[in-house]
Nucleic acid binder design. Structure first.
Lengths: 111, 111
DNA sequence: AAAAGTATGTTAGATTTCCTTACAATGTTA
DNA sequence: TAACATTGTAAGGAAATCTAACATACTTTT
């Protein structure tokens, strides 16, 4: 049913490569994490690992900052659009629930 | 016309992560390179960088080796399928050439 | 205006990751 | 048996990353 974890979202890129891909400094990349705009995973030893999605997000963040938007504002925007997404998801599930109620659809493993 | 360089083919993954993703040892990964089965890029400093495609290929290689196939044979297979691909490409271009001869299609920058 | 906050650079020292080379061990092919 | 194939391991060095701290220049808040 669900996607095989897409390449785009797999956290496999170290910070040096992210620097190359985005043109940002490592200082900037770490700072945006400190401001909770980005959430790399870590290796056993503690090195950061990013996804291509993270890389794209970083570029968007950098663009907004160039436009004078503060990390603080960017974070709010992100929370807003996250909420909107959640809202969409809730609506989708409600509709799904109504269909189930009406027609008794099932897709679980039970027969 | 051509694809935006796909995430799958971008060489951005360091050997430690490849080890995690494939379960192979770094020794094995480097050895398969020595046997010309895989071709990582390098960072400025000399560290190897792999793509997701490389990771998949490594898993295939590992499976064949478990089946007792030697790197030497695997390489031949790869060259064979590479040649088949080239052959397809040549055919495609020949057909394209014939179309051009017949109808004089152009898409270059010249008027 | 002074204080606080934002964004980034830089430095230092420690730790992790990666590199190459070489030798060893074991199994396979010629 | 001699050569080859595959993998482990060790050593020493270089590259990459980490955190913490201090500095700077701006902007916002009080």
């Amino acid at each position: 049913m669900t996607n095989e974890a897409s390449y785009k979202d797999k956290k496999v890129i170290t910070i040096g490569i992210v620097r190359e891909l985005t043109g940002l400094s490592e200082r900037q990349i770490r700072y945006y994490e400190e401001r909770k705009l980005i959430f790399p995973e870590r290796t056993q030893g503690g090195s950061r690992k990013y996804s291509f999605t993270d890389v794209e997000l970083l570029v968007e963040i950098a663009n907004k900052i160039e436009d004078g938007v503060q990390t603080h504002e960017i974070r709010k925007e992100m929370i807003r659009s996250q909420k909107k997404l959640n809202h969409e998801e809730v609506k989708r599930k409600m509709i799904q629930g109504q269909l189930n109620a009406q027609f008794g659809f099932r897709n679980g493993p039970a027969s």
